[in-house]
Nucleic acid binder design. Sequence first.
RNA 1: GAGCGCGUAGCUCAGGGGGAGAGCGCUUGCUUGACGCGCAAGAGGUCGCAGGUUCAAAUCCUGCCGCGCUCACCA
Length: 911
Amino acid sequence: MEEANKIELEKTYDPKKVEEKWLEFWIKKGYFQASISSQRPSFTIVIPPPNVTGSLHIGHALNNTIQDILVRYKRMKGFNALWVPGTDHAGIATQTVVERELLKEGIKREDLGREGFIKRVLKWKELYGNRIIVQLKSLGASCDWSRERFTMDEGLSIAVKEAFVRFWREGLIYRGHYLVNFCPRCDTALSDLEVTREDTKGRLYYLRYPLVSTDKNGQSETSRDDSASLHIIVATTRPETMMGDTAVAVNPKDERYKHLIGKEVILPVVNRKIPVIANESVDMEMGTGALKITPAHDFADFEIGNKHALPRVQIMDFKGVMNENAGIYNGLDRFECRKQIVEDFEKEGILEKVEDYSLQLGKCYRCGTVVEPMLSLQWFVRTKPLSIPAIQAVEDGRTRIIPEGWKNTYFEWMRNIRDWCISRQIWWGHRIPAWFCKDCEGITVSVEEPNVCEHCTSHNIEQETDVLDTWFSSALWPFGTLGWPRKTKELEVFYPTSVLVTSFDILFFWVARMMMMGLKLMNDVPFRDVYIHALVRDEKGEKMSKTKGNVIDPLDIMDEFGADALRFSLTALAAQGRDIKLSLSIIEGYRSFMNKIWNASRFVFMNLDNVEATRRVVSTGLNLSTPDKWILTKLNRTIQEIENSLEEYEFDKTSRLIYQFIWGDFCDWYIELVKPILNGDDLEARKRTQAILVRVLSSSLQLLHPIAPFITEEIYQRLRELGVRMSSTDEEETESISISSYPNFNKDEIYEEAFDEIEYIKEVIVGIRSLRAIVGVHPSKMVDIILLPDNKKILEITQANKNFIHSLAKASIDLSREEKPKKAVAQVIEGLQIFLPIDGLVDVEKEVERIKREISKVVKDVELTNRKLSNPDFLERAPEDVIEKEKEKFEELSLKKHKMEEVLQKLSEIG
RNA sequence: GAGCGCGUAGCUCAGGGGGAGAGCGCUUGCUUGACGCGCAAGAGGUCGCAGGUUCAAAUCCUGCCGCGCUCACCA
């Protein structure tokens, strides 16, 4: 007896014992650091930077699992793989969080002043900003942590300034007085994208604006007459804005109002005369067909106001409080004002009626406050010229969007793009590099802080207090992180990046803007592919949210089930174009899979009695058995399919393939087939089998590694202890599975014949097991089975694999009979009848039922096939091979039907 | 209003013009020398509905129904 190996695996896999260890190992060894001097092709991903304030949620887990799969796969494939990690300063979000924190101490940010507040935020970031990075690491993310970046770090700050300055000089950035979305709670302007529309129940108020009646002398007087012809009724959802009305617009084609165009109405409350104007855009069907125009507080009205040169009257301040232009309502909050005004108007007879109305209300996407369109001086990016190359790049495929369906969404948005308001009235962020001159009012824009105004050389200059939209800096991420605007080796080697992995909800916010910025500033697309993955929802398909209490916290999951189980679950569900409904039971299921792999390995370890036998894991030169050939064929086919699926971003398919191979092929069949050999006396055969076991196990681990890095590393390291090395000859490359080379498809390991043979034997075994179950034989009891093959070939195959049938079906096989036994239950498969003789113990009636059911199924198929074959059109038009196949099918099924009927006949005789 | 996606086994989902698939759940049997987070054998489906194209439709086309999402200044 040879020396028993000393490495034994525990009975159950415990992720807690291994994950942290390998994490540290990988990072310490620097396996994930990319090289700028490598000759190998590069593969680059930049992480969608999570908010520094953030904590890992399930969406991050999915997003980063997918990126990690790609990076680990490419790294193993020999690419110079770089995954750049980092975080985003998340202006409004972070400021809000810190402000809330301060408020607990009774401090407002104004109390600290700008500098003091920024210091406070930085302190906060130091304390909590690293949290999500630690969490990403624990997920197993194989980022190059030595290159971690932050959107507010020095390099990226320079990038932001540089981009701003260039855009300004080219006229791509301008400053102007426009109507913008303003959040009174966050106290800042927002871009269009930062406003979400929500279905809200509101009311439609009908207001009566008296006409100014003009007498023959041309003098006007106010009419208080209630008769219909003397006023216009306008409908509005926002009566409190009426003080800002500067016109009433009607459609010029509208017969009801035609005669009033050019006349004036008197605006209640403020008693201002405003004109009735004609505008095509007014919908006659809508409301009363007369539209109050409030250019300073409504986007559509702003447009109309411009066309007709109407004055803009602002009636509230940036906090949403009514100002002096609101007359008696001065000082009231906008919603209180609405209440009050409705009450007052009702009394005064100005309010004609009120209707329930549902509308899409714009709300701040950060805090949910109703957004107020406000007239203010802001900075904008002129997006049209930037969008054109960004559209072209996707049109001509320089950047691919996967799944393709999102292309349309991208185009749709890009083609209708509007200028981007980039200034924010907050403190936390990149301060706009523009200085105003107090003497000449000129603007100096510069990367370096200027001493003088570039227009009049005055020293009396002051920097803009606004900061930039966080997405402005995020848009520079793919090249800013690689050193831009410096001309770095990194940019040369790693730009354009290979793929961006993200979810569709930031397609416009981020992806589109990176495209525009990358093409403008780098003169090339920021990434070759954009892979858009699903949203993770709860098991009912609802969005996870803290308020609903249906969140699945990835940290809890990793703690309970291990990072690998979580990663595998997300991967298995990551089908393109479909949301992920995640539940605990799914994760439990894949935890079982991890345990299965563990135990398959445990089995292998237990059956390696000699290190020599396992040192080399190559299979060439061995006198392979049929099952060996079968599993190698299956392995190679799986390798090929996995590779395809990964290249196509079909991650669900990848995980299914691995799952099926490891569990369905390797564990359920190969290991079982091979057990007698391992327990047998044939030393050569045993050694050979051990080699194949190790070979298939290690390849499986490698295939699985990108999805489940921890368990695969753990088992791999244990194999190493035994002296097993992965196929690479380079000792360094075998230190860790994460840098070993990914299995390659090898056509020399495809054995068609052996493969088909085992597939057939599997059917025989299942057939026998089925008979055993029917008769109710105890699993441990051996049965006698009679096989009647149709032809010599089947006879040979069954004969050659008799011992496998014997061990897997617990059956002694008799192949020498020439006729059917008298009393037996039977199974018919292609080319073979399987009999299990009985002593009348079986429930004949039940068995007759079963056979009948099966016959009727076959009959149905036979008829269907026959119908096809007797259809002249089919024979004429269907392709040759289809007809051929159909004929074979017909033969086979007819034969089966015939045999089954015979079986039935025999059974009836017993009965 | 425009656009997109999805309706396949009880549940979650693959598949995608020529013999309906997986996992979970369910039923039955198992202290099988890797694993009960397991093994084996089963039951379970007019592939949303109606038309059309085709020799052939779960699969392609059209319409409808249901669910979801995105975009849009409709008072």
